[in-house]
Amino acid sequence: MLRLESLTKRYRTGDLALSAVSLEIPAGQVVGLIGPSGAGKSTLIRCVNRLVEPTSGRIWLGDLEVTRLGRGGLRRARRRMGMIFQEYALVERLTVMENLLSGRLGYVSFWRSLARRFPPDDIRNAFRLLDRVGLMEHADKRADALSGGQRQRVGIARALAQDPDILLVDEPTASLDPKTSRQIMRLLREVCAEQGLAAIVNIHDVVLAQQFMIRIVGLRAGVVVYDGPPDGLTPEVLTEIYGEEDWTGTGEQTDVDRSAPPGLPDTDELVGAL
């Protein structure tokens, strides 16, 4: 589905954010990307849809080489990659519905979007997604009238409105309280499962990552230092990623949570239901 080949990013300041990262993510797989601040997690995600231009390396989305696309091609490729942001990044002064419909911008002409006359199918689908994230009655509210958790749900719905193949998720829970964080993570897992979406999820919270991800990639100073199942995150591995610290508590909690393995719903069954 998504393949990164020795992706490297060096900023103009000279900082090496990513150093020859190679990664392959099959369709429908949800990958958690962990690592300390400044490890290059955000840069990696932004390189995939080229909000940040990679310095070298290649990115393949299926058979499409994203790194070689021109402007128009890149815009078409971005439609296939839904992005979800840390601070929601909703357009605060637009209504919830407009934010959702902005996910369709890559599909409609400028004049249509200017007049806010989106195709009926887009609107129907937007309402369906709004209902799916439980915000049906908030369609006409302005985005800045919503709570943090609600805004992030709009953010998810906007990404889904793009009808993407993969979700790029940047610290979806960093601005949320623990309970809302869990709800958002669960919602993300559910929608990925329902639609068979792959996802890369940057996440700060190791416990949350272990609970909701089936594969974890650990990044340190722009280099992949771990790639494997959540229960492989031993104290030694965490030390490798984050540096020296007493990790025993984290490990135990993982064991408790892992005793009931995250219910990964049967994808085919769900797609059928939709």
Binding site: N49, L51, R75, R76, A77, R78, R79, M81, G82, M83, F85, A89, L90, V91, L94, E98, S102, G103, R104, L105, G106, Y107, F110, S113, L114, G155, R158, Q162, L168
Partner: peptide, 16 residues
């Protein structure tokens, strides 16, 4: 950035 990430063109980024 979020609007740009949806694949919107420059005029649409301006508008939205």
């Amino acid at each position: 950035e979020a609007v740009r990430a949806t694949g919107a063109g420059p005029a649409q980024v301006l508008d939205f």
